[in-house]
Design a protein around this nucleic acid. Structure first.
Length: 547
RNA sequence: GGCCCGUUCGUCUAGUGGUCCAGGAUGCCUGGUUCUCAGCCAGGAGAUCAGGGGUUCGAAUCCCCUACGGGCUACCA
């Protein structure tokens, strides 16, 4: 038999991305709270969201919690907050009421301010709250003779698989229960015999599926087996629940990762059996680690927020935010890996990405997560940032390093702002700020011994008097003139008297004042540092130079 | 093993039969700007478009085969 193609399949049968004409674009992200969200899944969510935004449609968040055994407390909140932090807001999804009905011990708690009061008209958005609906659908299939009760135990199935394996044959489930009279199966089930419900897949012919990026794919029905649509615990598995929900929630485009490609025959057959029109599937390629393999913890499967502790090894994976990456940069970078606007632009603000996004630009082959490029892009975003805003973002990092108090006063904030004006173009990640700006704080900087050796001690006769005279001259500079230009003029004048110019002039002063050889413009630095610090450091360095 | 998907500079990608001895970005190298670093500017190296067969006057672009990579092969998602 040949499965009908969805009506939205273009007549030419070529891959197409065009949204179904006349149909409101509704996309969804449907994670399962069995683990923490990392950038791989986040990117899938991003593409889905982008598609909805691009066509002024709706983006929904649905929680696929049909596997009650694998729930991870806390995962739900991390997922919801990751999306929020990234600005991937949902139009329909979990709300406060739904959350209240969840078992906090198994799901963890979610901050109430993260959730809307009313999740939307197509709820509930937790699959665990839709069991009645799934049973209704399964019963319909049963009544139509399109599904049947099966009574193999997991052990029996394992044995069947092992046997096929031993014969080096592919295991395709072919049940003896498929042809069991329906009422007999029902009777046994109602008697309480443990059972599952399986869907009758076609056993011969070709099953055709469609994907927006790849077009039509044909599958030999002989390779397909009758999959479970209702587990013995009364929950449906993904294959049933997702299909029912996508239909009930009026999803127009099902954006999901390629690992679902091979199960799409199941989904298409289910839709056909139910007489429903499938959404346009968009199977997006994965993001891999530098080794070309699936993103793993050590290869960059980082969360956006939250800290993931491996329960076995105790290894901690820090988040992109903790590592000093900006949401906007991550957003931009993620959008550009696996999708291209078609031209050569790279730095694209959110609204531009939304405006340009289309399914045609999505690539079919997996990408490798390039941390170097993200870091570069992060630097670009930092440089573009409003300095005041930058200061606000950097403050927590400085506080964590003990450079400023956790709750800094106005003067401190102002000072940090001026410091950042000088360091902004050198920052690639926010977490580099403490290292880069440490010398701006405290009475004396940490003096780098190599630099002291090279720039101060090498001339124990010449450097101390130079530094001391400079301190004396700068001490006389009126407060109002404590600015980079007057400082530079005086410094050069003193330097001239000591036969110093260019590097000979600035290097010792820089080491004296900052403890190191690299940094922002010397005179701007001195201006920000303030007279008191500069003088103290110059005199201290003179002492160091003498040995 | 079986089935399916994929394969353009190290990496992200542009490219949909001629304008491609393949363009951009990142990373790397060199030079310039300069008090150092960063930034910025300029330049360079880097892809026989996985390999092989076709089709065509002409192929990175279409077809076939092979190789390699990935996914799936659960009462997980």
């Amino acid at each position: 038999m040949t499965m009908p193609l969805p009506n939205n399949t273009p007549a030419t049968e070529t891959p197409s991305s065009r949204p179904n004409p006349g149909k409101r674009v509704r996309t969804r992200f449907a994670p399962s709270p069995t683990g923490f969200l990392h950038v791989g899944a986040l990117r899938t969510a991003l593409f889905s969201w982008l598609l909805a935004r691009r066509y002024d449609g709706d983006f929904l968040l649905r929680i696929e919690d049909t596997d009650q055994n694998r729930l991870v407390p806390g995962a739900l909140e991390q997922i919801i907050e990751s999306l929020r932090v990234m600005g991937i807001g949902y139009d329909e999804g979990p709300d406060a009421r739904a959350l209240a009905a969840l078992d906090a011990e198994r799901y963890g708690t979610v901050r109430a301010d993260l959730l809307p009061a009313d999740g939307g008209a197509h709820g509930p958005y937790f699959q665990s709250h839709r069991l009645d609906r799934y049973r209704e659908v399964v019963n319909g299939l049963l009544a139509d003779g399109k599904a049947y009760f099966a009574f193999e135990t997991p052990e029996q199935l394992a044995a069947m698989r092992a046997e096929a394996d031993a014969r080096k044959q592919a295991f395709v489930y072919r049940s003896g229960y498929r042809d069991l009279p329906a009422d007999e199966g029902r009777a046994r089930a109602e008697r309480g015999e443990p059972h599952v419900v399986r869907f009758k897949m076609p056993q011969e012919g070709v099953i055709r599926t469609h994907d927006a990026l790849r077009g039509v794919t044909e599958w030999d029905a002989k390779t397909q087996d009758d999959f479970v649509i209702l587990k013995s615990d009364g929950f449906p598995p993904y294959h049933l629940a997702a299909i029912v929900d996508d239909h009930d929630m009026d999803i127009s485009h099902a954006v999901r990762s390629t690992e679902w490609l091979s199960s799409s025959p199941k989904h298409f057959c289910l839709y056909a059996a139910l007489g429903w029109e499938p959404p346009l599937y968009v199977h997006v390629a994965n993001v891999n680690g530098p080794d070309g393999k699936k993103l793993a913890k050590r290869t960059g499967a980082k969360p956006v927020i939250g800290r993931i502790t491996d329960p076995k090894t105790g290894d901690v994976t820090t988040s992109f935010l903790d590592d000093g990456y900006l949401e906007d940069a991550l957003f931009n970078y993620l959008a550009l890996t696996g999708w291209s606007p078609g031209d050569e632009s790279e730095i694209l603000p959110r609204d531009e990405i939304v405006r340009l996004f289309n399914v045609d630009g999505l690539s079919v082959s997996p990408a490798v997560f390039d941390l170097d490029k993200l870091t570069w892009m992060n630097g670009v975003y930092i440089r573009q940032m409003d300095p005041g805003e930058l200061a606000g973002r950097v403050l927590p990092f400085l506080a964590a390093a003990g450079l400023v108090p956790a709750d800094p006063d106005e003067a401190t904030r102002d000072y940090v702002g001026r410091v950042l004006l000088l360091e902004q173009e050198r920052l690639k990640r926010l977490d580099e700020a403490p290292e880069l700006t440490a010398f701006f704080f405290g009475d004396l900087p940490e003096y780098d011994s190599r630099s002291v050796e090279r720039r101060l001690k090498r001339e124990p006769e010449a450097v101390p008097p130079f530094l001391e005279e400079l301190a004396a001259v700068l001490a006389d500079l009126p407060d109002a003139a404590w600015l980079d230009e007057p400082i530079e003029t005086r410094t050069r004048a003193v330097g001239e008297r000591h036969g110093r110019e260019r590097g000979e002039l600035t290097h010792p002063v820089r080491v004296a004042v900052t403890g190191r050889e690299v940094g922002p413009g010397l005179f701007e630095t001195m201006a920000v540092l303030g007279r008191e610090r500069v003088l103290r450091r110059l005199r201290h360095a003179a002492g160091l130079a003498r040995g």
